[in-house]
Design a protein around this nucleic acid. Sequence first.
DNA 1: CAGGTCATCTTGACGTTGACAAAATAATCT
DNA 2: AGATTATTTTGTCAACGTCAAGATGACCTG
Lengths: 211, 211
Amino acid sequence: MARTRTADKAYHHGDLRSALLEAADGLLEDRGVEAFTLRECARRAGVSHAAPAHHFKDVRSLLTAVAAGAFQRITASMRACKAAASPDPLAQLQGAGEGYIAFALREPQHFYLMFRCSVVDTEDPELAASGREAFLELERPVAALHRVDDAMADDEGSIDAVLLWSLVHGFAHLYLDGRLSQRADLDAAALAERVIQRTLAALGANLPAGR
Amino acid sequence: MARTRTADKAYHHGDLRSALLEAADGLLEDRGVEAFTLRECARRAGVSHAAPAHHFKDVRSLLTAVAAGAFQRITASMRACKAAASPDPLAQLQGAGEGYIAFALREPQHFYLMFRCSVVDTEDPELAASGREAFLELERPVAALHRVDDAMADDEGSIDAVLLWSLVHGFAHLYLDGRLSQRADLDAAALAERVIQRTLAALGANLPAGR
DNA sequence: CAGGTCATCTTGACGTTGACAAAATAATCT
DNA sequence: AGATTATTTTGTCAACGTCAAGATGACCTG
């Protein structure tokens, strides 16, 4: 109709799919998961309320795609931090952890969404794959750390991976919920750095090539 | 009307408030936060859809009360585990962590709710108080641990409190989201025990009275 | 015990949501 | 060019949360 398609152009047989994903990203970060609405999302993309149906079966399926994208970005965030760190295994691990938390602080609502299994389709292969890939960014450096030490069972390595993921995951959640603000003297990133550092130092002391 | 009030008796001027809270507890654990509905909750309590309004301003306010109750139970869960452990500070800490996780596994939906700040009124004084009390169960034994060691700054103590809370909190979330199931040989509680043990051992090695 | 008052609960309505069906529109293929 | 198909719109539905108004029962005063 009398609708000016400026930049985004060509909705009809342009790609509404990406436009919807973009709109969803914005809506999510603006209003949060709970206030997320398919209709508002369609509105933002400039289409009717039923338009999304052809590209996404469900709200669930839209949000699943959004979450998959978010997992790719958290992976990228961890990689970026690792690239900026020294190649030393401990430093790599520290980088991965900080990248994880940095993403959570940068895109809190996306971070929430990624782990809201009741809102997202965890069976979705794309989501599962991008999730696994993200975890690997954390698991790999743990394995590298332990490879130095033959005496240590693989077992312990997998425990440490769980430990570290739990640590950064919990930290991110608690901080975002405002539960960690008693340490107002440190900002989130600095506090995260110290917590990870302390953990790795303690863990590293149990390894032969400590620090 | 022709409604048989069997056990629960006296709704009118009985306490609907408690009945609603009970119904909400059940509905929450059955269907999850996202599927939680005020109307269904009223249905379970055997009243009309608008009845809750007189006792709770909002869905939000109902869920806030539910969350406050849950915080009291997680506190109780930590206390119970601590009571079963030796009085040694490290064992107390281990107990607190295990109690935290045990609650999350026992009442996963409540655990989710407690930290869903967009669904719950974090300003509510009752909720804030019960939340603070729960955190204290974890913070106190950390402080006790550090009191042994004068050389260590208070600072480090508060870092360790954040660290441990993050650890158990993250573990609970990840496990509930099914992200930790690669270790199928261990059940949740056993895995949690090992993770906490490893953390405390590593941390404890940095203390004078280690282990 | 009568009558009034108030808290409690029900009924009905409104606007909004996600999903579905059917109609309309535009792109593509032959 | 004409038909087929993919895409989008319009309209509808039940269900939701919240509000307003009315009904119901308990309590209190005289």
